[in-house]
């Protein structure tokens, strides 16, 4: 459901940067999406294409680079992939994982004409 808010954010940034650079058409929008945001890429693409109609981004492709949710235990120092938002260390009894990656949510680049 929140994919719509994210799609709007992407569209605003893309149109803003495209206009500033005097672009005529946006071909591709590069996105960096961390796993923590739980964004469903299908829903995001659907929302985006719906609101991009009639704009410079109407035919833009979303190139999504996903970043896995990785954490490091504050006790044993080992690194793990975090599943189901469980921040407890799978090995130590009371270790907590601090995030290394997976929180990114940005527009990386635009490919324009």
């Amino acid at each position: 459901m929140h994919e719509m808010a994210i799609a709007e954010g992407i569209l605003n940034i893309a149109l803003d940067y495209a206009e500033k650079n005097r672009a005529k058409k946006i071909q591709e929008i590069g996105l960096l999406l961390g796993e923590m945001s739980g964004v469903e890429t299908d829903a995001l693409e659907f929302s985006f294409h719906m609101i991009a109609k009639g704009t410079m981004a109407s035919e833009a492709e979303l190139a999504i680079r996903k970043v896995p949710l990785q954490g490091k235990c504050n006790k044993c120092g080992k690194e793990f992939h975090i599943g189901h938002y469980d921040f407890r260390c799978p090995e130590c009894k009371d270790g907590v994982l601090t995030l290394l990656s997976g929180r990114e949510m940005q527009v990386e680049y635009l490919e324009v004409d």
Binding site: I10, I13, Y17, M105, Y109, L110
Partner: peptide
């Protein structure tokens, strides 16, 4: 032409 953006999509709280 490629435009480097690197801008966060949502505000911090959102």
């Amino acid at each position: 032409m490629e435009i480097q953006v690197r801008k966060n999509i949502l505000g911090e709280n959102d």
